[in-house]
């Protein structure tokens, strides 16, 4: 715990309060300016991260839940084959997957090119480099992290409880609403965390599918570290990001309760 969690965080915290530059060395000076500068410069990118990451999580949930529901309850004895079929694309490296989405969605790519020349789409129609592309990419990238916990929680539901509900006059919709959904919430919560956290922090999707206007804070941090070599600023940005995430998690837990997250 100390070695792999507290130590890196402590290092990051110290680094975020340093000043100086890469070539002349950094010194610790309680330089809180890193924080104010970071937030004022990149507030828009923070917002993008929350917007795209949040939207992607919702999209992933809306697609994963019905899919998981169908596999768990209506796929018969071949459940695992269906599950595997849904997850198969994700065995390919996600960089390659995202790149191919980029190719597919390009303005004159195989999808829109023909539609445009057939005048079915306006010439300035585009998906690539828009928030839609980034959100879609994120939702797609982290889809398994939503599908699997949701599926696991649905699969775990005692089939007898569904019969109990039917016995007590619940029709299909009410069975779903009163029994299946409540009992699958632990999986939904887990899925939202597992999808949401990496989606918000992601910097690959917006790089490959987004444009100048869709930069997310994860990308900024990466750039500050790798290109600008401004370690203190990068550390400060990352720290703000982490604290924000932590606060959200605590709030999340407050609202829904550990009991819900942990299950019965």
């Amino acid at each position: 715990m100390f070695l792999f969690f507290l130590l890196p965080i402590l290092t990051l915290a110290i680094m975020s309060l340093q000043s100086g530059d890469f070539f002349n060395g950094f010194v610790f000076t309680w330089n809180v300016g890193n924080y104010s500068r970071g937030i004022s410069l990149y507030s828009e990118q923070y917002l993008h991260a929350i917007e795209y990451g949040g939207a992607a999580t919702i999209v992933a949930l809306l697609v994963a839940y019905p899919a998981a529901y169908w596999i768990a309850f209506h796929a018969g004895p071949r459940k695992s084959s269906y599950l595997l079929a849904v997850l198969l694309p994700f065995f390919v490296s996600f960089v390659i997957r995202t790149l191919s989405w980029g190719v597919l969605l390009a303005d004159d790519g195989p999808l829109f090119g023909p539609l445009k020349s057939a005048q079915l789409l306006p010439l300035d129609f585009r998906v690539l480099a828009t928030p839609v592309a980034v959100t879609g990419g994120l939702a797609y990238t982290f889809f398994p992290f939503m599908l699997l916990p949701v599926y696991a929680s649905l699969e775990k539901i005692d089939r007898g409880l569904i019969e109990s509900a039917q016995d007590l006059y619940a029709n299909r919709f009410e069975v779903l609403r009163r029994v299946i959904i409540p009992l699958s919430l632990p999986g939904v919560f887990a899925g939202v965390l597992l999808t949401g956290i990496p989606a918000i922090a992601d910097y690959v999707n917006q790089d490959l599918l987004g444009g100048v206007g869709t930069t997310m804070v994860g990308r900024v941090i990466e750039r500050q570290f790798e290109v600008s070599l401004n370690y203190p600023l990068a550390a400060a940005l990352a720290f703000v990001f982490m604290l924000g995430l932590l606060a959200t998690l605590l709030l999340y837990q407050r609202i829904f309760g550990t009991e819900q997250i942990m299950g019965d």
Partner: peptide
């Protein structure tokens, strides 16, 4: 018609 199931089937939530 109502049933008392062998495993009771009480809703845990």
């Amino acid at each position: 018609v109502n049933t008392v199931f062998q495993s009771y089937g009480l809703f845990p939530h």
